[in-house]
């Protein structure tokens, strides 16, 4: 490039950014669908915020009515019925001693939605994965799902944690055996909130 008509400051700027101009980060385009993903994520976020505000306002109104009606027994009913929920802290075994986290189970029309959040549980890939189970006192087990890493896992169960009160997570390998491997890495005993 003819640099005769560039000032020393401009030449210095071009030299400073020379390596960066070759970096893919400046030229890689985000996928076209990302815009809609962002818009949708924010719409969901706005909905959550609105619901929280509505609940707060409703509770405040109920509290105000209680104050005004002194001497009158008032049954306060929440705007949304509280769903039945269980939760527990998960305990690691010696196979994953660093792992820690918690689990919550919520009854829905479709079954029990189970949210498992575990940190420092090594990721398993390829033919290796984790499988979660619920077990009752009689030793009956129900598989509630499989996953690769435990950051934020949603599982589903058709049975109640009131009866199937032990949750375990095992290390599994893709093979012909659908049963648990016995390599338990996490256990939890959910209690009703």
């Amino acid at each position: 490039m003819n640099e005769d008509d560039l000032t020393p400051e401009e030449i210095a700027e071009l030299e400073r950014v020379d390596a960066l101009l070759a970096d893919p980060s400046l030229w890689t385009e985000p996928p076209a669908e990302l815009q809609e993903k962002v818009v949708e994520a924010i719409a969901q976020e706005s909905g959550r915020l609105r619901r929280r505000r509505r609940t707060r306002y409703a509770l405040a109104a109920v509290a105000a009515s209680v104050v005004l009606a002194v001497g009158v027994t008032v049954t306060v009913q929440q705007v949304h019925d509280d769903p039945v929920q269980f939760s527990a802290t998960v305990a690691p075994t010696e196979l994953a001693p660093q792992a820690h986290g918690d689990v919550s189970l919520t009854r829905t029309q479709s079954g029990w939605r189970i949210t498992l959040k575990v940190e420092d549980l090594p990721r398993r890939d390829g033919d290796e994965y984790y499988e979660a189970w619920l077990r009752n006192e009689a030793g009956q087990r129900v598989s509630i799902g499989t996953f690769n890493e435990g950051d934020y896992v949603t599982l589903w169960a058709p049975v109640s944690p009131a009866e199937f009160d032990t949750l375990t997570v095992t290390r599994e390998v893709l093979d012909d055996d659908p049963g648990p491997s016995g390599e338990v890495v996490l256990t939890a005993h959910p209690q009703r909130r």
Binding site: P24, S25, L26, P31, L34, K37, V38, A41
Partner: peptide
């Protein structure tokens, strides 16, 4: 925003996640 994320993460999928989280 995507450029900043891609510069660090060097993975288009992770850069997408980071971009989405940034806007949220």
């Amino acid at each position: 925003v995507f450029s900043i994320a891609y510069r660090v993460l060097r993975d288009a999928g992770l850069a997408e996640d980071a971009t989405q989280q940034t806007f949220v």
